[in-house]
């Protein structure tokens, strides 16, 4: 505890850094997955292909991704941007699938009714499909944000500092407290982001109160990776 208080500023700095890298990566991944997933749902034949590509991306271990990307992007291995890209790729990989499922979960009868009521194609997408897909989208986003927070800690192995640095540093110094502080901080961050997403969901979709649909529960079984 005294170590934590003595090093509070250091831990806070890592926490903030961890938070923005995670959030940025998740958002980039989401921004990419949303149109791709929507498109894949509209074109069933692309669905299979997208699921396949996504599955391959997802099999790449995070540490391998952190190491290989600089060689491909030409960025220095210690750069944050390469970590963000790597995490965003994972986030997108997981979310393309759940976005496809989310749009797929919207009842065709409702869409039909919307068209009959005079919604244009674009209006239907933004005012009907997107809100109705919302709860499943949100469930996917929650899974991804937790795994991104956890996965980022692995980047400390290649020397990019974040809360995971407390693990590597604590291991080198054989110092238990530092590791416990790291774990607690990561769990706190993961829970905080989860609550935040849930809150945003409740505000944006008061009708759904962010409850999980059966569909979302099943896609949870696909899990996440640290």
């Amino acid at each position: 505890m005294s170590w934590f208080l003595d090093n509070f500023d250091y831990v806070r700095e890592l926490f903030v850094r961890h938070a923005w890298i995670s959030v940025l990566s998740t958002l980039i991944g989401f921004a990419f997955a949303l149109p791709v997933g929507w498109f894949a749902n509209e074109h069933p034949r692309l669905r299979g292909a997208s699921v396949f590509i996504v599955a391959i991306l997802y099999t790449i271990p995070s540490i391998a991704m952190f190491i290989l990307l600089p060689g491909l992007l030409g960025t220095p291995i210690l750069s944050v941007s390469n970590v963000v890209v790597a995490l965003a790729i994972y986030a997108a990989a997981v979310m393309v699938r759940s976005v496809t499922d989310a749009f797929g979960s919207v009842s065709p009868a409702v869409l039909d009714a919307a068209s009959a009521a005079g919604f244009s194609r674009a209006q239907r997408v933004f005012r009907v499909e997107l809100p109705l897909a919302g709860p499943v989208l949100l469930a996917g986003l929650r899974v991804v944000s937790v795994s991104t927070v956890s996965m980022l800690s692995v980047a400390s192995l290649i020397g990019v500092s974040n809360l995971g640095s407390l693990f590597t540093d604590g291991f080198r110094r054989d110092f238990l407290t530092e590791i416990v502080v790291g774990i607690v901080a990561i769990v706190v961050l993961a829970v905080a982001l989860d609550l935040l997403i849930n809150l945003v969901g409740r505000l944006l979709m008061p009708w759904a109160s962010a409850q999980q649909t059966p569909r979302a529960r099943i896609s949870l079984a696909r899990g996440s990776r640290a």
């Binding site: 899974v143 937790v146 795994s147 927070v149 956890s150 800690s153 692995v154 400390s156 192995l157 809360l163 995971g164 407390l166 693990f167 590597t168 604590g170 291991f171 054989d174 238990l176 590791i179 416990v180 790291g182 774990i183 990561i186 769990v187 993961a190 829970v191 989860d194 949870l220 899990g223 996440s224 640290a226």
Partner: peptide
């Protein structure tokens, strides 16, 4: 519980157990 387990960073957990 599954949610909580998921949030646990494996690297940190591993090092923690190694120290024990």
């Amino acid at each position: 519980i599954t949610g909580a387990f998921r949030a646990l960073p494996t690297l940190g957990l591993l090092i923690l157990i190694v120290l024990f």
